[in-house]
């Protein structure tokens, strides 16, 4: 089943200067897609549009064959059933770790607690359940942020430079662990990154965007073969789009 379909999506902030032009892609259920590209290429904008945080100026988005956004319809972010992980992690500082993860989960308190604990265990941060975000390391915060986004069981998990601020060894470890959890849970995911290694180690599919247009797409192996050189250039750019 097609989890996400984007048709001819375009977006601009200033008329005549497109941030995204005729972007089309399909993502099957349980697949992990990486969107690669240099800073300012429009990849974060694409993610925000899928999340409903920005409205595209042209094209359409379908989830499970239902239109969620086109010229006539817009399903609000809160009704789209997507999870979001951002580089800054954006954990709610006034809530404990367990309460952060329980935040978006529905059901009785015990059910919500059980769901949150299960995810915290998966990400090996259950011992910090009753700590506050500022009491744990940035790597642990990132695990919590992914757990929180997965907790409501979203149809699609969106991750924007999820490992962007972490050191290399921690990033390598988290990539492996996160991919395993996403695959075990059959979570359809999109990862936005400028780091080629993120795409290589985590995704089934990769698209490369430059100047708002998809210039390459295919399996991670295909892209490895074609554009390894190009992506090295991306990796040197640390800033987010």
């Amino acid at each position: 089943m097609t989890a996400l379909e984007i048709k001819d999506l375009s977006h601009f902030y200033v008329k005549g200067k497109n941030v995204l032009s005729n972007v089309s892609l399909e993502l099957e259920e349980g697949e992990i897609l990486s969107i690669l590209g240099p800073s300012g290429c429009g990849k974060t904008t694409l993610l925000r549009i899928i999340a409903g945080l920005e409205k595209e100026t042209g094209g359409s988005i379908l989830m499970n064959d239902q239109i969620i956004s086109d010229h006539f319809h817009t399903v609000l972010t809160e009704n789209r059933d997507v999870g979001l992980v951002v580089q800054e992690r954006a954990l709610f500082p006034h809530l404990t770790i367990i309460n952060n993860v329980m935040f978006g989960v529905v059901g009785s308190k015990s059910e919500r607690h059980a769901t949150a604990m299960r995810l915290l265990k998966l990400f090996k941060v259950e011992r910090y359940a009753y700590n506050y975000p500022n009491e744990i390391s940035s790597g642990e915060q990132q695990r919590v942020a992914i757990a929180r986004a997965m907790a409501p069981n979203p149809k699609i998990l969106l991750m924007d430079e999820p490992f962007g601020t972490l050191d290399q060894s921690l990033t390598n470890q988290l990539r492996v662990e996160t991919r395993k959890i996403l695959k075990d849970n059959k979570t359809t995911s999109i990862i936005v990154s400028h780091d080629f290694d993120d795409a290589l180690s985590m995704s089934d599919k990769v698209i490369v965007i430059e100047d708002g247009t998809i210039i390459q797409s295919g399996s991670a192996k295909d892209i490895t073969h074609i554009s390894r050189e190009k992506s090295v250039k991306f990796s040197s750019i640390k800033a987010n789009t």
Binding site: A51, L53, T77, E78, F103, R148, A149
Partner: peptide, 15 residues
């Protein structure tokens, strides 16, 4: 308050 907090909260069905 980082605006990303709002983005994340909205994906968690809070508006």
């Amino acid at each position: 308050i980082n605006s990303r907090v709002d983005d994340v909260a909205r994906t968690l069905k809070t508006s």
